[in-house]
Design a protein around this nucleic acid. Structure first.
Lengths: 236, 236, 236, 236
DNA sequence: TATGAATGAGTTTTCATTCAT
DNA sequence: AATGAATGAAAACTCATTCAT
């Protein structure tokens, strides 16, 4: 009944996952049972399925079928469909944090730092469609599952701190306006980066233009950076 | 099995629907056979249910129960769960167009017109959460249902025309930049108005701040208008 | 919702039905309501539908839709789905009787008479597929509906009398064997004429050869006549 | 809700199925998990139900109730009502082939071989009423389900080869006519054996004579063998 | 006589989850 | 640690029939 013995890799759009197989088995002989590997495999497949179908739309059978293991293991490790969904959310939020560490905007000039932050946010959303979709799905469910994800709240403070730092330095340098709330600015940036990915299907249908098309991608990136910089810039 | 005969009103947030009841029941006392009323009633309930639960999450039984009729009528008029969902999409997209007609931005000064357009867009999304949720849900499904809605594609051109007109007049008046694509601008405005509503749950969880709170609402409205105007404004 | 306002004529294979429209309205002014016409229309459509789908497979809605009238009338005139089915059986058995009157085998030489009878039986089954299917369907239901059809039993005696007469004259003339039971002979003839029509689909699928194909038709007709004559002929 | 654990045996009329129970349960006491047994049990019950009620008339619930398992297992193994129906067709057509193998007509004198073939065909149809009914039902459905049964087409060639062999040897021996098409002959034999079983209800109603009555049975058997032999025999 | 709307009981199918091995 | 079989509850959908006009 299984579609194949190898589960397709999730659509990470070229960004390597932080748990490569070769690395995970480092030092091991090829074991028959590898719980970590099994769990990871389930999580990968589940990420795709939940992302593609939503929490209610996803089918436990469908997930199990694309897995290297069976449905029973899914319950063995994650307890329930919802448990698996939460594990997926946890993993996905964990992935993004790893990337954010690489952003050292505090070392940049405020304007350049702001640009870097927006570009990073843009690129991340543009690439991590699964993430965008899962956030969307969570909102359909009133964010009630993400609330239980421990890593969730903490990671968001970081971004705000980054923005606060940028704004403060920009204000001090006479480059930025002083009346901007950092959380509002984060919302503004997020909006611009998120919407074009999350709602690209209805947008594409409505206007016959797919916002994720490579050509548009570059233009949107420039436009969003431009819009944000114009917004924060101090009027002369 | 029925919960009662009083169907809950949909969350239209004070904006009257374009098919007022008084008209539908013209002159009559509560008639037993009133197909239009029956269909409207089903659609209203279904809008809430689909909006709240998603296409897969919604339950036909649950919809029927909150209706004045039975499940059978739902199939009688809409053929299937998906057919009903599509009818809901059609209605919801129809509602926004009706309102757009009332915006006579072409009579306004470009800057004021732009402000009016953004404020309208902001207010609409802020109030019509069902609409925002349904669009989100459609995107989870890759917009495949809205694609089958005949009236959908033509419907959206209007906004673009409005924007084109505003841009042209603003450029002519030396107020606006001349390098802005109208569809991109629409996307930008939409992003700002949509995201804070659609993703308010995860946002609220992340930052302990509900973007739909009345106090934030006004600030966001001003911020978004400001951001858009700064974006389109011609540099001196 | 209706497919069209005109119901397609049943597949009578070129043999005119005994109740042509023009005839039915003879002498009438074009009346708004014509109960006989309505009934006939329903019966024609029902014949096709029951013949094509079986008693359980036929859908009252489907019949009504292809009718000039509505479902309600169907119940008005025929009481129930089963009532309509029985009316169809009655009509179909009535039709065949009308044709049998034209066979005057008693005036023919026994061998020629037998040939004529077999050819008539062959042609009738070959053309009246609806009849064959309905008989088949009745057998699925243990013939419990046809038992209530008044015209049914009577009409079958006629054939047996015809055969008895042929056999008697053939025996007297030294042409036919004297040990043949007329009802058994009728069964034999029926078998040969019925099976190739009733089971032509599985036969066609099994052997890649459609027994109703015109080329085969002539060959089968000759073969069956030949087989029957060889069977009844007296050995020298 | 279950009627009980004793599932009624299908009407195999004394001919053993090719998958005897004793073998399936080899050495074990009644096992709880025995997929083959479960599938076989469902198939047996389904054969009866479909045969008795037709595809549309059969009720999945009714089948499940007479089974040792639940309705769910029926879907687990056969996917759908139609899938189960197809599996029944496949089994039933498989059964007849198995028996055909035991007929070694090639070792017999042509006339005796032909007699043996006809008698086998007669006996098989006479006993396997379920088979006859299912074929009838398939024809109501235009053979569209049997067309999807992979094993079906190849299966039927065997009989034709047998007939070809008999005809060739009979012609060589100067016993048979040389102008007979083997498929036509198969159709002729089938007709005679099938019709009296498949249409015995209407026949019984029409002539007050049940063709499946033991006394008639023997007479029909002899008559059909006689008719076929007279048909193939070479004229002097 | 005629009609479109309405319906309750039933029918097929699906789904997350657990059991026996 | 792992598995294929099994399940009950619920979900979507259908159908012959009747009601109100």
């Amino acid at each position: 009944m299984k579609k194949g013995s190898k589960a397709a890799e999730p659509d990470t759009n070229g960004i390597p996952s932080d748990t490569p197989r070769s690395d995970a088995r480092r030092g091991d002989a090829r074991r028959k049972y590898d719980p970590e590997q099994t769990k990871r495999n389930i999580l990968e497949v589940a990420t795709q399925e939940f992302s593609a179908m939503g929490l209610t739309g996803a089918r436990v059978d469908a997930i199990a079928e694309r897995t290297n293991t069976t449905k029973r293991m899914l319950y063995y490790y994650f307890g329930s469909k919802e448990g698996l969904y939460q594990a997926v959310l946890e993993k996905v939020y964990g992935d993004i944090r790893a990337l954010e560490q690489d952003l050292h905007v505090s070392e940049l000039d405020p304007v350049e730092g702001m640009r870097a932050l927006v570009e990073f946010t843009f690129d991340y959303h543009d690439r991590q469609r699964d993430f965008v979709r899962l956030v969307t799905i969570e909102n359909i469910h009133g964010a009630k599952y993400v609330e239980q994800v421990k890593t969730f709240k903490g990671r968001n403070v970081t971004v705000i701190h980054t923005i606060e730092d940028l704004l403060a330095r920009g204000i001090a340098a006479g480059q930025f306006r002083s009346d901007i709330d950092p959380i509002d600015l984060h919302l503004l940036i997020s909006s611009l980066c998120f919407h074009r990915v999350g709602n690209r299907h209805t947008f594409g249908t409505a206007f016959g233009r797919d916002p994720s098309h490579p050509r548009l991608r570059a233009r949107h990136r420039a436009m969003i950076v431009d819009a944000v910089l114009r917004f924060v810039r101090k009027d002369d």
